[in-house]
Structure formats: C-alpha cells, structure tokens
Amino acid sequence: MKRLVIFDLDGTLLNTIDDLGAATNHALEKAGFSSHPLAAYPAMVGNGVKKLLERALPSGMDTDEEVERLRVFFREYYDEHCADHTKPYPGIPQLLDTLQAMGVKLAVASNKYRDAVRALIDRFFPSIEWVAVEGQKEGVPVKPDPSIVFDILSQSPTPKAEVLYVGDSGVDMETARRACVDSVGVTWGFRPMTELKAYHADHIINTPEAILDIVSAQ
C-alpha cells in the first residue's frame, strides 16, 4: 500500500490553463509583444514560469533580461487573477477526501512559484491536511530535478516503495523516475497519453478514482 501520494498541481489537481494563459498574454502585451491563443498554452506550461515565458516570447527575444521583465508583469497579474477561471478537475476533491480518510499522507510538488501554489491549495482544498505543499523556490532546480520530492520526503519521511507521484506530463514522470518512486500519469491534464507513455509512466489512468486501486495494491 502507498502511504504518501505526491500530486503535481497544474493539469493534475487543478485546471489552471486559462489563468496561466491570461497572465502570460497580459505580460506579453504589457511588454509590447503579441499574445497567443489560450489553446496554445498547454504545450508551453509544465517547467515553471520562467520557461513558460521563454516559450511565449518571439524567437530570439527570450533573453534573461526580457524574461525577467515579463515575469514581473506575470506575477502582478497572476497574484490577483490566479483563480478567475481555475477549478479542480471533476472527482479530485472527492479523491483527496477519500485518501485522507484512508490515512494516506498527501503532498503537492509544483513548478509554479510557491506563493501561488499555496494560495491555490488553500483556496480550493481547505479541508485537506497536507504534509507538504511545495513550489518553485529560488536556488532550487525545478522538476524534473527530483529535489522537490526529496524536500517533501524530508518533511514527511516515507519509504520510497510506499510513495506515489501523480502528474500529467513527461516532466512529472521523469521527476518520479529520478526520485525512484512509482509514477501515475493522468490523461485529463495538459499533455497527451503518448507523452506519458514515452516517459515510461508506471501507471496511466483516465479518472481520479482509479488512483485508489493503485494506492491500495499490496
């Protein structure tokens, strides 16, 4: 049985894509660049805000200075509008309640900056007693580097054989592989099933409740 389940946030627990896209478009337009259709953003997210802005900028304009200028605009907007359109995926609140009732420890590991991660978790899942809620921090590499998983394990020591990592992207599957924990790829997020297979997800599921069988397996 798994005793700790670590969830990615964007594309796994919450559908955040419209608010991420709106914040990025706001930053682009404020800096004098053209915006993108919201449908373009699922392919850009997953590696943190810095990489999102690099991908959104025109080719050749993704310098460190330009990215930093846009990041200020992004955060100003996203801090105020991060929940305008964001909502949990169907079945996620019930899943978290069930896992908590089973005594399973729950954590979040996101490449989104930590203040936004905690604001969203507090807003949408106030009844869950998380053992750790972690996002991107200065000086700590982002996923797929496994440092964020090791940080969570330091806060809630658990044998790796009893840990499950759940996410929607190849970045998440690679994070789990590097951390030497089992991975679950979810198909309701931002990335296609082909990516989850290409990154060797240990399990691929189509509905949140399917996690319960994986957690309970001996």
Rank of each mutant, 00 (worst) to 15 (best):
K160Y: 08
E162F: 06
D145G: 07
P157W: 03
S156K: 09
Q155I: 10
V166P: 11
P144K: 03
S147T: 14
T158Y: 01
I148L: 05
I152F: 08
G167N: 09
L164H: 14
V149S: 07
V163P: 14
G167H: 10
Y165D: 01
L153C: 02
V166F: 11
G167T: 06
K143R: 09
I148A: 03
F150D: 14
D151F: 11
F150W: 13
V163F: 11
D145I: 03
L153W: 11
V171I: 15
T158F: 01
S147C: 09
T158S: 05
S156H: 12
L153H: 03
G170P: 12
V163T: 12
V163Y: 09
I148V: 15
V171Q: 06
P157H: 02
S156R: 08
Y165C: 00
G170A: 02
D145C: 10
L153M: 05
G170M: 00
V171D: 10
D145T: 03
P144G: 05
S156C: 15
A161S: 15
L153F: 00
G170W: 04
P157A: 01
V142K: 15
P144A: 01
V163G: 08
T158C: 10
P159F: 00
K143V: 14
P144H: 01
K143H: 08
V163N: 10
P159Q: 01
Y165W: 07
I152N: 12
S169Q: 04
G170T: 04
V171E: 05
T158K: 02
L153T: 13
D151V: 00
P146D: 12
A161W: 05
S169E: 10
K143W: 13
T158M: 02
L153S: 02
E162P: 02
D168N: 08
S154N: 15
S147A: 13
V166I: 13
G170N: 06
S147Y: 09
G167D: 11
G167M: 00
P144T: 05
G170Q: 05
V142N: 15
V149F: 08
T158V: 05
V142H: 05
A161T: 14
D145S: 04
I152L: 01
K160P: 11
T158N: 01
L164D: 14
I148K: 08
V166G: 13
S154Y: 09
G167W: 09
P159S: 03
K160F: 04
P159I: 02
G170I: 02
Q155L: 13
G167Y: 12
S154D: 15
Q155C: 10
I148T: 13
E162R: 03
V149L: 10
P146V: 08
I152Q: 05
S154W: 12
S156M: 07
V149P: 10
I148C: 04
P146M: 06
E162Y: 08
P157D: 02
S147V: 11
Q155F: 07
V163L: 06
K160I: 13
T158A: 05
V149E: 11
L164E: 14
V149G: 07
E162G: 03
V142R: 15
S154I: 05
S169A: 08
P159G: 01
T158W: 00
V171L: 02
D145Q: 04
E162H: 12
